[in-house]
C-alpha cells in the first residue's frame, strides 16, 4: 500500500491531484397549496402576488444553471396534480408570446400560473387534501428524474396555507421518512394553518422551515433561503428552528398527544390505554403488565 500512497504524494507535490469542482444539476419541486378556503382565510396575502414571488424563485433556480430543472405541483380537495412540466402538447404550451426574450421563463410562468389559477377556482368535493398525497407524488417524480439523470440532486419546497388532515398523519409521516431516506430535503414555507407535521418534515429531512407572517419581502425569503441548494447550505449558517414540535398524533383519535401509549410490537401511538390488545396489530397485552405503566 505504501507504493500507492507514495504515488499520490508525488503527484500531490507536482500539483497534479486536483479534485474536480462542479455543480451537480438540481431539481426543485415546488408544491403549492391551492385550497381556496385556505387562501381566503389568510389576511393580507393575495394568491397572485405570492405566486409572482414563487415564479421569481423558479426562474432564479433555472437561471443558476442550464442543467437545473423545476417541477410544480398543486393540490386542493381534488387531490394533487402535476402542473409543470406538463405532458407534451398540452393546450397551454402554445400560448402566444410576444417578443419576450426569456421564452423559457415566460412559457413556464404562464403555464404554471394558468393551471394553478384554475385549481384555485375549483369547487372541491372533499374539503381537504392531506399533504401526504402531493408529497408522495413529488417524491415519485423526483426519484424518477434522479434515476433518469444520475447526479441530479432533488429537493422539495412546500408552500402551505392550510393545516394537515389529522387522519392522514401516518401516511404523511411515512412520506417524510421516505424523503429522509432518499436524501431529499423538504423545505417548508408556511403562510398559514397549524404546523406540527410540516415542522417535523423540514427537521427530519434537513430542509428549512420558515413561518412567514407578512407578505412583504417574500421574494427576499425565497432568494436568501429556499433558492440556495443543499450543498451550498452546508457552508452557511442557516436560521435554525427555535423549537420543533415533535408531538405525535394518536392513531385512533387523531389527536395530538404529549404523553401516550405505544404498542411494543407495531409502535402505534394511542392516547388512551388500550383494552387488552393493540387495536392496530391485535397483539394481546398481558393484563397483569398493563396497569403497572399507568
Amino acid at each position: 500500500m505504501d507504493g500507492v500512497d507514495d504515488t499520490s504524494a508525488v503527484l500531490q507535490a507536482a500539483g497534479l491531484h486536483q479534485p474536480p469542482v462542479e455543480e451537480a444539476p438540481s431539481l426543485l419541486c415546488v408544491i403549492i397549496d391551492t385550497h381556496a378556503e385556505g387562501w381566503h382565510k389568510l389576511e393580507g396575502w393575495s394568491f397572485k402576488e405570492t405566486m409572482a414571488s414563487v415564479m421569481v424563485l423558479l426562474n432564479a433556480h433555472m437561471a443558476l444553471s442550464n442543467a437545473n430543472d423545476v417541477a410544480v405541483l398543486g393540490f386542493n380537495g381534488m387531490g394533487p396534480r402535476m402542473v409543470y412540466p406538463q405532458k407534451e402538447d398540452a393546450p397551454l404550451s402554445d400560448v402566444k408570446l410576444e417578443g419576450t426574450m426569456y421564452r423559457q421563463f415566460h412559457k413556464m410562468d404562464k403555464t404554471v400560473l394558468a393551471a394553478l389559477a384554475t385549481q384555485l377556482q375549483e369547487t372541491t368535493v372533499n374539503k381537504h387534501c392531506s399533504i401526504s398525497a402531493p408529497l408522495t407524488l413529488a417524491l415519485c417524480y423526483t426519484q424518477r428524474i434522479m434515476r433518469q439523470r444520475p447526479g441530479t440532486r432533488g429537493r422539495i419546497l412546500l408552500v402551505s396555507v392550510t393545516g394537515d388532515v389529522p387522519s392522514k398523519y401516518i401516511s404523511t409521516m411515512n412520506s417524510i421518512f421516505a424523503a429522509q431516506k432518499a436524501h431529499i430535503p423538504i423545505d417548508v414555507c408556511k403562510l398559514g394553518g397549524e404546523k406540527t407535521n410540516l415542522q417535523q418534515a423540514a427537521d427530519f429531512t434537513g430542509g428549512a422551515y420558515i413561518d412567514i407572517a407578512h407578505p412583504r419581502g417574500l421574494v427576499q425569503y425565497f432568494m436568501s433561503t429556499f433558492l440556495i441548494d443543499p450543498a451550498t447550505r452546508q457552508m452557511l449558517n442557516q436560521a435554525t428552528q427555535p423549537e420543533v414540535d415533535f408531538r405525535a398524533v394518536c392513531f385512533l383519535t387523531k389527536e395530538v398527544v404529549e404523553i401516550g401509549h405505544v404498542c411494543s410490537v407495531c409502535l402505534c401511538i394511542m392516547k388512551d390505554e388500550p383494552d387488552g390488545s393493540c387495536p392496530i396489530c391485535h397483539t394481546v397485552f398481558e393484563s397483569t403488565q398493563l396497569p403497572s405503566f399507568t
Partner: peptide, 13 residues
C-alpha cells in the same frame, strides 16, 4: 430577467 419582464432589445425576436 427573473420576473420575465419585457425585453428591451429588438434583436432576437
Amino acid at each position: 430577467a427573473l420576473t420575465a419582464g419585457p425585453a428591451n432589445e429588438k434583436f432576437g425576436v
